[in-house]
Structures are given as structure tokens and as C-alpha cells.
């Protein structure tokens, strides 16, 4: 049986489907009227200290500034996925062990699941969504496609972000340097050697070789 949405040329995405049911509250959280800050001030001998239950923060994500209010326990990963709808960073282990949630925080790779969003206030964040420009994939993304740098693809956005961090610092990494740069990313399909090939290829492309 053909789906109504598919007829209109709009396939249902899993995420849109889920949002239809439970996403209402998430959407509301970004609406400006809910941008509240809950703060108490504790006085000490050295002056007053703000103690937040909710804080208004700004994140510069993929070049765009977002102002939103977060609870201290919201991780950067939760905020990117649930509030900003950027689902490139994956929530896999949620314990800083797998690398699926890797994003760049001021050009350095970090696990967004082990970083509180409230502590990223004012910082620049790059997710995999920020790589393609004007419909053109980034050289790293092209290289991953050409060299089969993924199998199931679930870890790929994390690997791509670690690749970007590496290639921004080192234009011609050797195999050992590539392996070191990926020591914090796991691929359960075990596709490591093709991933290494993809990065070498990406490095070539980025050098214009």
C-alpha cells in the first residue's frame, strides 16, 4: 500500500513521525516566551555567587547563534538533538565511551554527551550538519563515500568530526597519527581500515592534490 505522504513526494522520516507524537513540548522549549532563567544568589565572604536551576545561554552552532534556556543537567548532546534538531551527533553509549556524539567545541573534538550545555555558553560548536556548504559535501564526506568509510553508518558522523579535527591540525597525517586521532571513536562494524583510507583520501582532497 502506498503511503499518502510518499505520493506527495514527502517520505515520512522516523524523526518527523516521532515528533508528531512527542515533539510538541520540545518545540515549545525553544519558543522565546519560555526563555526563562532560574537563579538564586548565595552570598559569601568573597561576594555573591549565582546558582542556576535554569540558565539562558547562547550557542554558536555551525555559524548560527542560538539563544536558549537550559537546565544544568542538559548535556550538549541533548540540547543539540532535542532542542536544535541536529541529530548528526548520535546518542549511543551516553557515557563518553563510543565517540558517536563527537562534535567540535572551538575546533577541538569533545564528547557532547559528557559536556554540560550550560558550560558551552558562548562557544562555537560544529556538528556534522555544518560541513556541507551550499549543497556540496565536504571533502571528508566525499572521501568517506568514495572509500566506503562506513558500513551501518551509525558511528560515521563521529568519525567525520574526529577527522575534521585531525585534518585541521595536520594536513598530511600518517597512519599512526590517524589511528591516534580515532582512538576515541568506536566502529562496531569494524570498518577501521576503510575509515583510515577515507581520511588519507580526504587529506589529499583538502590539500588539493
Amino acid at each position: 500500500m502506498e503511503d499518502k505522504n510518499q505520493k506527495k513526494g514527502k517520505p515520512i522520516k522516523r524523526r518527523d513521525f516521532l515528533k508528531g507524537f512527542g515533539g510538541g513540548a520540545m518545540g515549545a522549549a525553544v519558543a522565546p516566551k519560555f526563555l526563562v532563567q532560574e537563579k538564586k544568589t548565595i552570598s559569601t565572604k568573597e561576594g555573591n555567587i549565582p546558582v542556576y536551576s535554569k540558565k539562558k545561554i547562547s550557542l554558536i552552532v555551525n555559524g548560527k547563534k542560538h539563544t536558549l534556556s537550559v537546565k544544568p543537567r542538559d548535556t550538549l548532546l541533548d540540547v543539540l538533538r532535542e532542542k536544535l534538531n541536529l541529530t548528526g551527533p548520535k546518542r549511543i553509549c551516553n557515557h563518553g565511551e563510543c565517540g558517536g556524539c563527537t562534535v567540535l567545541l572551538d575546533a577541538q573534538p569533545v564528547y557532547s554527551c559528557m559536556f554540560l550545555a550550560v558550560r558551552a555558553d558562548g562557544q562555537k560548536i560544529t556538528t556534522v550538519e555544518g560541513l556541507a556548504k551550499g549543497g556540496n559535501l565536504h571533502s571528508i564526506q566525499k572521501a568517506f563515500i568514495e572509500k566506503d568509510g562506513y558500513q551501518c553508518g551509525f558511528c560515521t558522523s563521529g568519525f567525520i568530526m574526529s577527522s575534521l579535527a585531525l585534518l585541521q591540525r595536520n594536513k598530511k597525517p600518517n597512519l599512526e597519527e590517524i589511528k591516534q586521532a580515532f582512538s576515541g571513536n568506536l566502529c562496531r562494524c569494524g570498518n577501521y581500515f576503510k575509515i583510515y583510507d577515507a581520511v588519507s583520501e580526504a587529506a589529499k582532497k583538502m590539500r588539493g592534490a
Binding site: I42, T44, E46, I49, V51, S53, K55, P72, L116
Partner: peptide, 15 residues
């Protein structure tokens, strides 16, 4: 859930 205290100096943090 928890609350987050953000002191601005070591002195504030220790007090």
C-alpha cells in the same frame, strides 16, 4: 536534576 554554582574566583569557590 541539580543546581549549578558558578563562582567567579578561587576565593568565591572556596568560601
Amino acid at each position: 536534576e541539580f543546581k549549578l554554582a558558578q563562582p567567579q574566583s578561587v576565593g568565591q569557590a572556596t568560601s
